[in-house]
Design a protein around this nucleic acid. Structure first.
Lengths: 257, 257
DNA sequence: GAAATAGTGTCTATGAGACAGTATACG
DNA sequence: CGTATACTGTCTCATAGACACTATTTC
């Protein structure tokens, strides 16, 4: 295709070598929970998983890769990523954020490709229907630890590492845990989600700190029932636990104060 | 130019409409300090400034814009940004970080352009020589507050706002203040730098906190002279102040613990 | 001695960290 | 009655936040 750009001067972008494509790649994370065998009421095992697709074409035919696709002229990179995300998972209204750009020369054998990575955090509940519908062999969720040890297409191993570092940092400094939780959740669930993403995270007094310390009070709030009584859940425990929800309040972290 | 990509299949990127360019735009911040008139030894006035260039060509001829330029096939976006940065300012080895991508359709009248913004933090000392050399009328530092009120080319007002938000956040959560400071600095200088970037920042006990609280101890350290005595400076004060340097240690901030 | 910056003393309320103890309900 | 989760009590030490106070040097 020969590009002609009409404009008011003699400028023409077609004088220059231009990129062969600007793809978006999406790192779709979800947390899979599995009931522990034996006990009924107990906290589930949780595992961070990432969605990969198996390539059917050159290049990297047969290899697993992050889902993605090319941006077209009439959409933004973000639109493109959301479109791809919906095609791959069937879900909308999902937490997605821009992560990084990959532009090293030679990173894509098809030509000069500037790839943009987006991280999507999808609640497993939203993914369930879809998973049943087409359990295609070429689209699968892998435990992140497994994906890290696979040889992925392109520079996708690096993209995955960067994305992981990105969400680990965000998990601790923002309230993105919300994306992996139901609207109403218990403190243990929140704790588990954080630990699933950031395994090093540990805090004996977590419950007390998140609910009772002044500086953090306001991040989550107790859910109340119709009559003003506190709403509880005993999904995971004999003793019912208080349900909480995020408030939207986000304290500003600082090194210096 | 008609693109032909040789490869082992019948894939050809040239079948698709491709972008007309992938520019990098650089938001070059510096902190200008000015001695206060009258008093000799006193803390200078500091002001956050941003570098703009005046466009000579369509589009937006005559308007001020962020410096930037097109990426070529044999460099990464980061390389491109560093190249442009050096062309514009003559400096290397500067703190620069990737900020965001701008891809809204129609954002550039020349065609389909996916722009990548980089934030550079340049110490005014490094900029001084250059500024004297060519004080070109079409490249200037503006106070950020002035730039915000100008009508910049393209979507550069938005790019600037995003970059500002980016460095404000980073200023409080990382040690990028380092980029605006000499190797050895006083606590007051550090405090001033933070305040210049984040005007809301205020902390009566700053000195004590940064030097004496366990959780933060290790971010900066006292500079010692040859004989192990503490190195002081009285550049800004009658009473000499302890000099500090950054250690490289970066505590991990967390909402939850 | 006034001015300007640097730094310390001290008090109170809050929070971190650790560990033991109690509460609830199911099987 | 054991077990798994959900909390609460309590102790110690560190920190935040506020405000007054002292220290050093120059003009």
């Amino acid at each position: 295709m020969n590009k002609q750009i009409e404009n008011e001067s003699n400028y023409s972008a077609s004088k220059y070598r231009t990129p062969d494509g600007v793809p978006a790649d999406i790192i779709i994370f979800t947390i899979a929970s599995e009931e522990r065998a034996g006990t009924k009421k107990s906290l589930p095992m949780r595992e961070l998983q990432v969605m990969l697709i198996q390539r059917k074409r050159w290049p990297f035919e047969g290899k697993w890769a992050l889902p993605g696709g090319f941006c077209d002229e009439f959409e933004s990179m973000e639109d493109c990523a959301r479109r791809e995300l919906e095609e791959e998972t069937g879900v909308r209204d999902v937490h997605m954020e821009y992560c990084n750009v990959y532009s090293a020369p030679g990173r894509d054998p098809r030509g000069w490709m500037i790839s943009h990575s987006f991280v999507a955090l999808v609640n497993e509940a939203k993914l369930k229907d879809r998973r049943a519908a087409d359990d295609a062999a070429d689209v699968r969720l892998f435990p992140v630890s497994a994906a890290q040890n696979m040889e992925l297409a392109f520079d996708h191993n690096q993209v995955l590492e960067d994305a992981l570092a990105h969400i680990r940092q965000k998990m601790l400094t923002t309230t993105i845990a919300k994306a992996f939780l139901p609207e109403e959740f218990t403190v243990s669930e929140l704790y588990q989600v954080i630990q699933t993403v950031v395994p090093e995270f540990a805090d004996q007094n977590f419950l007390r700190k998140i609910t009772s310390t002044q500086s953090r009070k306001g991040i989550i709030e107790e859910v109340l029932g119709a009559n003003g009584e506190r709403k509880m859940s005993n999904r995971y425990s004999q003793r019912a636990a208080q349900l909480y929800r995020f408030t939207g309040y986000k304290p500003q972290l600082s090194l210096y104060s």
